[in-house]
């Protein structure tokens, strides 16, 4: 049985430009337009989120070239499989950043696996990263976010920072910090819970 026609001639991006004073389409509406092969809609989404995607990828893979590769992949995934985004489960930005993080980590780990001989050095890197004063939070401009991060215990902050922002597995973090693996997992969870509570209280989370 035939399903729906997937395209109309008038695209969302054309509607936007033709309708004077028209409301800016939501991310969710633009994703629907992407599902109808509206390249203008993808362009608008890239303008809205491309820089954040690139910034997170670059922080993780530490290379402009690789980060641009990740950015390209993330938007091509959105183009090819827009149905993966479910607006009932959060914002498109959260979705794209989660996708970006996962892809960057995959890239990072495959590179590390290829350089197997560097394994020991890698563990030492984690120790080094964990020992130095954290640089991750120094540029945070938002008072609310600084306050939320300040409520974390030192162990929670380090665990989240090393796992999320530096891309280490919780086992690597545990080894580097000399803590049981279960403790690290638990700290990530309690830290996330604490952050959620703080961000919700400050109105940054629904």
């Amino acid at each position: 049985m035939l399903l729906l026609a997937k395209e109309s001639v008038e695209t969302v991006s054309e509607k936007q430009s033709s309708g004077a004073g028209a409301l800016e389409p939501s991310d969710a509406n633009l994703v629907v337009a992407v599902a109808r092969f509206d390249q203008g809609a993808l362009s608008e989404l890239y303008d809205r989120h491309g820089t954040s995607v690139f910034a997170l990828a670059r922080r993780l893979v530490k290379s402009r070239e690789l980060a641009e590769e990740v950015t390209q992949e993330i938007f091509m995934r959105l183009w090819n499989r827009p149905e993966r985004f479910d607006p009932s489960r959060g914002s498109l930005r959260s979705f794209l950043l989660a996708d970006t993080h996962g892809r960057s980590i995959d890239m990072l780990r495959s590179e590390l696996a290829r350089k197997e001989r560097e394994k020991k050095e890698h563990v030492m890197d984690v120790r080094h990263t964990a020992d130095i004063e954290s640089q991750v939070w120094t540029n945070v401009a938002s008072e609310e976010i600084r306050a939320a991060v300040a409520t974390l215990s030192d162990g929670e902050r380090k665990a989240i920072e090393l796992a999320y922002f530096s891309g280490y597995t919780y086992r690597q973090v545990a080894e580097a910090l000399g803590e049981p693996e279960g403790t690290i997992k638990s700290r990530i969870r309690t830290g996330m819970k604490r952050l959620k509570g703080q961000l919700t209280a400050s109105g940054l989370m629904p």
Binding site: F54, R59, L97, W137, V140, I145, V149, L195, K196, L199
Partner: peptide
């Protein structure tokens, strides 16, 4: 993921 998205945006307020 919402929490992490907020953190990711916050740590780099002026990204390239």
């Amino acid at each position: 993921r919402v929490v992490l998205g907020i953190l990711a945006d916050a740590v780099d307020p002026h990204p390239s």
